[in-house]
Nucleic acid binder design. Structure first.
Lengths: 106, 106
DNA sequence: CTAATATTTGGCTATTTTGCCAAATATACC
DNA sequence: GGTATATTTGGCAAAATAGCCAAATATTAG
């Protein structure tokens, strides 16, 4: 494996890792219907304001979302909408897992 | 958020988390061209045999790959091939990131 | 049965990630 | 200016993850 390939793998992993957290995944899914400010997330997520803010920072640094400050609030929106489309494949894995589970149970 | 939705988010996160590691991502990509046994991965991955085996276990438990023992070897193959197709979206994020980077540099 | 090969498992430490709190920063309003 | 609101940042402790080694297991060959 070349150094370049390694870099590319690490970059892709970073994007996946950003999505690989229940709260971050949920927030990403929420953004499908349009931008939201941090406070809107905080209301629904039962987590500290700082925690939500940090999660959004992770998504931002991965390049999945972008933010814009308007007045006192910071609004986040999807930067690369396809992340939601590819989630359908993750669902497919879940369905496959459920089938395996069902098969085991007879 | 209902308990059911929470479960679903956690399940999806587990799948994403399994892919969110350079070595596991690489191994998953390698399986695109067909099954491989653990020893083949070990030769190319500069990591301990046990480490590679554990990574494969993570992918297996997430439902991304399945294994089959034949003789002394254990062969792994993709169980849900779409995981590679959705990787094209992750690439799209990388391209988007590169563009942002380029824009910053003027 | 014994030896050799392929793989998994257990255990341990180092590193990374999470999430809270408190403090800092930014913006609008008075 | 001072105050209230929205958000980020720094710091810390708890939890999760990674990767190595050694030991256990399984299979084949002799």
């Amino acid at each position: 494996m070349t150094a370049k390939e390694k870099k590319r793998l690490e970059a892709k992993s970073k994007v996946l890792k950003a999505l690989a957290h229940p709260t971050r995944l949920w927030m990403t899914e929420q953004l499908e219907s349009g931008e939201k400010c941090v406070c809107e997330f905080v209301e629904e997520v039962d987590a500290d304001f700082s925690t939500v803010s940090k999660h959004l920072t992770v998504l931002k640094q991965a390049g999945i979302v972008e933010d814009e400050k308007r007045g006192k609030q910071v609004y986040y929106r999807l930067k690369v909408p396809c992340v939601l489309k590819f989630m359908s494949c993750v669902e497919e894995v879940l369905i496959s897992n459920a089938k395996s589970q069902a098969a085991l149970l007879g």
